[in-house]
Amino acid sequence: MIQVLYFARFKEVFGVAQERLPSFDTTDALLKYLIDRGDVWAAELDASRSWRMAVNQQVVHGCAALADGDEVAIFPPVTGG
């Protein structure tokens, strides 16, 4: 299992802050699974939109390997400070 967290606009649009999902081999596989839910998932996670993904609190660029127990976070560009 992995833990997937959503922040800010994603949390609101998806209507969920976090969920447990079965393990995936890669972040691309996880993304395909989420996009296949269609609707807001497909719209928000479109590759042309700018958003970020972190695995175990490290930002990943491109596709990254996933392991059982990983924490994956998906979020819009940050706007703190």
């Binding site: 606009r9 940050v78 703190g80």
Partner: peptide, 14 residues
């Protein structure tokens, strides 16, 4: 610190 914080630290403002 401020410049990098603004683009790297996971905070979001509404």
């Amino acid at each position: 610190i401020m410049d990098v914080l603004k683009t790297e630290a996971p905070f979001w403002k509404k």
